[in-house]
Amino acid sequence: MRLVRTDIRPTVPCKPRDPGWTYTCCLMKTLAATQETAVKRIVAELKHRPGPLLEILHAIQDTLGCVPEAVVAPVAEGLNLSRAEVHGVITFYHHFRRAPAGAHTVSLCQAEACRSMGAVALAEHARRRLGVDFHQTTPDGRFTLEPIYCLGNCACSPAAMIDGRLHGRLTPERFDEIIAAQAKSS
């Protein structure tokens, strides 16, 4: 088992959607020039749509890998909202990350149907296997472990979403196979 170092934040890139960029948004209070350009472009493109803020935040997270503190000001300015309002929306929704995830995101369903089929024990196994708790990233930056509350796969419990791929009837053994395969691929 690996030692858990929760005091160290991952310094690896955000999900590397554009390998040419420097991703330091987890730590930074300011945006890199390319990121600022991207945020301004997203705001300009979407601001005229009805009720655009959630769409803008989704687009930012899809592009930067997270919604860092530093986007609050340009988004607020673009939409003529207060920073408090934008901050309030970002922090209301579980989906928006303030810091980037690891290279692989492992979301384990912890809702009732999955609990009836051993989701709590599976989560315990995943914590041991990855050496991190929920909402944490492994020190090597490879895996982020998250709870999720229902993936709609309740007839095939327990369920998990790993890098956007849904898994059903998951067992600890199968979990280890998937993690080993992902670790090899990155």
Partner: peptide, 19 residues
């Protein structure tokens, strides 16, 4: 964006409006 409460209809409308 991952908020269970947005299944409540007025909360859903707030969310659709971007709040």
């Amino acid at each position: 964006a991952g908020a269970y409460i947005c299944g409540e209809e007025t909360s859903m409308l707030e969310s659709l409006e971007g709040r």
